[in-house]
Amino acid sequence: MLEINKLHASVIDIENSEILNGIDLTVNKGEVHAIMGPNGSGKSTLANVLMGRPDYEVTGGDITFQNQSIIDLAPDQRAHLGMFLAFQYPAEIPGVRPWQFLKSALDSKAEATGEQKMSVRNFSKLFDEKVQAVGINPALVKRSLNEGFSGGEKKRNEMLQLEVLQPTLAILDETDSGLDVDALRIVAEGVNSMRSPERSFIVVTHYQRLLNYITPDVVHILVNGEIVKTGGPELALEVEKDGYKEYLSTSEVTA
């Protein structure tokens, strides 16, 4: 489904700012991959580069999704192919209501893929169902997108979008260590309920805690912009026990 080959990326317009130093990663259909690493290792950058954030520039290598190179595609085109990024800190957008925004997102996708746009009536029905499923306060979704939402409400809102958009690859950027237990649960419930043989996930996280709720198929350790170790769920537990110290030193030696 997703193949990352020798991916190099740096901050746009800044020389010698390479953050990703040749990443190789394959995510197959239905798999859940966890990407762990210390602060500043580049894991959040990886999540954002996959989605095409304009702050970064791919300087080498390739990313293919559904057998198509996506590095020259705009973020919305990647979304139309079935990619999704759940943000650690979703933007607060005054004056824009979640309903309206998600309808536009689906309309744009329908337009791009030549499908028929969903009627307002059918969309409203779908939206109401998902609002209930995710457990978001219906009064909230009438308000401006994320404006004045609590941390937990923002997470629920991200999961609501995940549910409505039904991507084939969802990337969750949960790099921050400050996630409370509630927020962790919300994200985990979202992922677990959406897990299917047709859908893959990349969960980016600093701590193992989130993986108590989501059992990954594969765990990668990312240090200094490189994947230094790949293993099963047990790898996350090792990191929990021993930290990243061991990887930091090997990386420094090889660097």
């Binding site: 989605m51 304009p54 979703p90 824009v96 997102a105 689906l106 744009s108 958009l165």
Partner: peptide
């Protein structure tokens, strides 16, 4: 970027933000 990552094309995203 947030709006675009959800599949809203750039022109529509700009219009949504101005309208907002």
């Amino acid at each position: 970027f947030y709006l675009q990552s959800r599949g809203v094309d750039e022109e529509s995203a700009k219009a949504i933000l101005v309208r907002g």
